[in-house]
Design a protein around this nucleic acid. Structure first.
Length: 701
DNA sequence: ACCCCTCGAGTTCT
DNA sequence: CTCGAGGGGT
């Protein structure tokens, strides 16, 4: 039996023959296992076949078949990679699309930093490579971990694959680098190498990749590092992540250090002193774009000095000190076949364009959102029109405009539906609102299924393997009608009652995986539970506010019941929560006024342990935490917004008017009534110098 | 009565 | 990613 011949002893001819045999054999057993649920061999024997196939492929990569089992069998789970939390989050950048955006950016920063006209502010401009961001972690100079960006906070451990990239040094001179050093950069594929690789794959009858970015991403996320190794990948370093000791004071110094350690850098990079220089750089790169051997989607401008970056800080999820200036999105023309209407979990009816599939910047697009009926009217989009399509931020397809000259005769303007396309209930557009909503509420199955989808989504209960299709099947079989049902599935499956058993491709293993994912969610923090309920206007952030304020589920429910009158102390407490006003509070109470919702919550609480809110460990221990600060008058050394950001970073809340709750008032020049009021109320008054000293000390007086 | 910001809700494709 | 609405401040 040829299985017993050592892989090392095979010649190329034997290897090719064996790969062919293995492909057929593995596909056969895979079918028996997954689709017919009557395996002929046990799991260990099956795995042995897979391993042998992989070993032969590793030795003869050029013989790997387009129908190779290693591509399909191992391709499914991203679960193959361990999740790793980034020590410092990998943030995204704000975007600029026009010269005005760039001049605004420079002006905004100069104002924020309170720079005088003669004080310089240097940026470094670099090309923005269209690849896959990765963070490389070095410990005592040794590469110990590589992670993808993921959602920015948590990525996937792709160390074994990254180690196959020749551009990446595995060791850095230990004498020169701190104990912990993270290098961030972009994994990419050059265009000529990408084209050559696709040519080879096509010749072998395999699937080709749409663009170098997808090819690079696919290669890095291969479960088998041997496949990654066979792909032509490169790496540019562009920043540092966590460092246990500072290694540079500016971006230009970082670049010099990276180059010294053997990293490739984004070139050309250029220091620029003002918006004019940045825009010159942009135009040069745009002109050079076709000649560059790799794809870029724009350029990046970063403040050079690290001390200034520190002062500038962050706005929501992006650093204030950098911006990506994007090239205009690639556009394509296609025919709009029809305008469909989708039903969201809140009943919102969203029109979606069904398009003749068209390639936009390397990806086939067949649908695009039209947002709402006003948007359709503004652009006068009609079924049958030829439209210009682009991918916003190179991701989400959007209809830019109609090519009116190509409009067929006799076309009619779009008419919004009067009834929900899913349940037939009346569809109403409230005065002053843009969205039209299905009034079916609880009787609309589309809404109910969307609510379930929301319930299991990543920011809510995060149940993997319970996607749209599976939910729809369980719904049709009346196995899942409300969230609590999900947790009773495994019990019902013991009687082989679930529709899973009729699904082609589903065997015991798949069902087992799903039930394990569900069981892992039997305990859930209060804020996630609140979010998962899908109450109108209550998203992740607002759910957290509620959890923080009411601490336990029982307490929250009692408070909501007590606030039902919409005027008493419970209502006052609710609307007194910062960021919760009368509109949000009303939606919350509407939810609780519906008996069905209370039943759903009771039912869920019987299945799931709801964990009381636990305050996160404070990031900064500062005497300013929890204090309320008011700035008044003209500050000279810091702009008002920097002062505000600084105070908030130290845990204080900044407001505009002096009240009894105000902890202290910072008075700049020409302070007026606010300082007077502070004196009347006996609130502590600080001069700007006092404030600067306090802020510089990290809040410790 | 405005303006700015944050949040929510919707969306595509691999 | 985009848009609209709500909240809070000027």
């Amino acid at each position: 039996m040829s299985d017993t011949v050592a892989v090392e002893a095979l010649d190329a001819g034997q290897a090719a023959a064996e790969l062919e045999r293995l492909a057929a054999l593995i596909a056969h057993h895979d079918r028996l296992y997954h689709q017919q649920d009557r395996p002929e061999i046990d799991d260990a024997a099956f795995d042995a076949l897979l391993r042998r196939n992989q070993a032969i492929e590793a030795r003869f990569p050029e013989l790997r078949r387009p129908d190779s089992p290693s591509l399909r069998v191992g391709a499914a789970p991203a679960a193959g990679f361990r999740k790793v939390a980034h020590a410092l989050p990998m943030l995204s950048l704000a975007n600029a699309f026009s010269p005005e955006d760039v001049t605004d950016f420079v002006t905004r920063l100069r104002r924020f930093l309170s720079l005088a006209d003669d004080e310089p502010l240097v940026f470094v401009a670099e090309p923005k490579i269209d690849g896959l961001s990765c963070s490389l972690r070095y410990q005592d100079g040794r590469l110990v971990q590589a992670a993808t960006r993921g959602d920015g906070a948590e990525g996937e451990d792709v160390t074994r694959n990254i180690l196959t990239i020749a551009d990446i040094p595995r060791r850095l001179p230990a004498a020169e680098v701190p104990g912990i050093l993270e290098v961030r950069g972009e994994v990419y594929m050059t265009r000529p190498e990408f084209l050559e690789m696709n040519r080879q794959r096509a010749a072998l009858g395999g699937e080709t990749f749409a663009n170098p970015r997808n090819a690079a991403a696919g290669a890095v996320r291969q479960l088998n590092p041997a496949i990654t190794a066979s792909r032509p990948l490169h790496f540019f370093g562009y920043a540092l992540g966590e460092v246990s000791a500072p290694v540079a004071a500016s971006h230009q110094q970082v670049r010099a250090r990276l180059a010294g350690w053997g990293f490739r850098l984004n070139e050309p990079a250029r220091p620029c002193a003002d918006a004019g220089a940045l825009l010159d750089y942009y135009r040069e790169i745009e002109a050079a774009r076709p000649e560059l051997p790799y794809d870029i989607d724009g350029v990046v401008y970063k403040v050079d000095r690290y001390d200034l970056r520190e002062r500038l800080g962050f706005v929501s999820r992006a650093p204030r000190w950098a911006i990506a200036h994007k090239f205009p999105a690639e556009q394509a023309r296609t025919r709009l076949k029809a305008i469909l209407v989708q039903v969201g979990r809140t009943g919102a009816l969203t029109p979606v364009a069904e398009l003749e599939p068209v390639n936009v910047g390397g990806v086939m697009v067949s649908r695009a959102t039209l947002h709402n009926e006003d948007e359709i009217a503004r652009k006068d989009v009609r079924a049958g029109d030829t439209v210009v399509v682009q991918r916003a931020g190179d991701v989400i397809p959007q209809v830019v405009r109609v090519v009116t000259a190509l409009r067929p005769a006799g076309s009619e303007p779009y008419l919004p539906p009067e009834h929900c396309p899913e349940c037939g209930s009346l569809a109403v557009r409230e005065a002053g609102e843009v969205v039209r909503r299905c009034t079916g509420g609880l009787i609309c199955p589309a809404q109910a299924m969307e609510r379930l989808r929301h319930f299991v989504s990543r920011d809510a209960f995060d149940i993997e393997g319970l996607g749209e299709k599976i939910i729809a099947e369980f719904w049709a079989d009346e196995m899942i009608r409300r969230p609590g049902d999900i947790f009773r599935l495994a019990a019902r499956d013991r009687d082989r009652l679930t529709p899973l058993r009729r699904r082609p491709g589903w065997g015991d293993r798949s069902a087992q995986n799903l039930f394990e994912a569900i069981e892992a969610r039997r305990r859930m923090p209060l804020d996630r539970v609140i979010h998962a309920l899908g109450i109108r206007q209550i998203g992740q952030a607002t759910a957290r506010l509620l959890a923080r304020n009411y601490l336990s589920c029982d307490n929250w429910r009692a408070a909501m019941a007590a606030a039902a009158d919409r005027e008493g102390p419970a209502w006052q407490e609710l609307t007194g929560i910062d960021q919760i006003g009368p509109a949000v509070a009303a939606d919350l109470l509407d939810f609780f006024a519906e008996p069905h919702n209370l039943e759903v919550l009771d039912d869920l609480a019987r299945e799931v342990t709801i964990i009381d809110y636990e305050p996160p460990a404070p990031a900064v221990v500062s005497p300013l935490a929890g204090k309320t600060v008011v700035f008044t008058g003209t500050l000279t050394d810091m702009s008002r917004s920097e002062a505000k950001a600084r105070a908030e970073a130290l845990g204080a809340k900044v407001t505009g008017s002096v009240t009894g709750k105000t902890s202290f008032v910072v008075t700049g020049a020409d302070s007026g009534s606010k300082a007077t009021k502070a004196r009347e109320l006996g609130v502590t008054i600080l001069s700007e110098a006092d404030w600067l000293a306090l802020a510089a000390s990290g809040g410790h007086p």
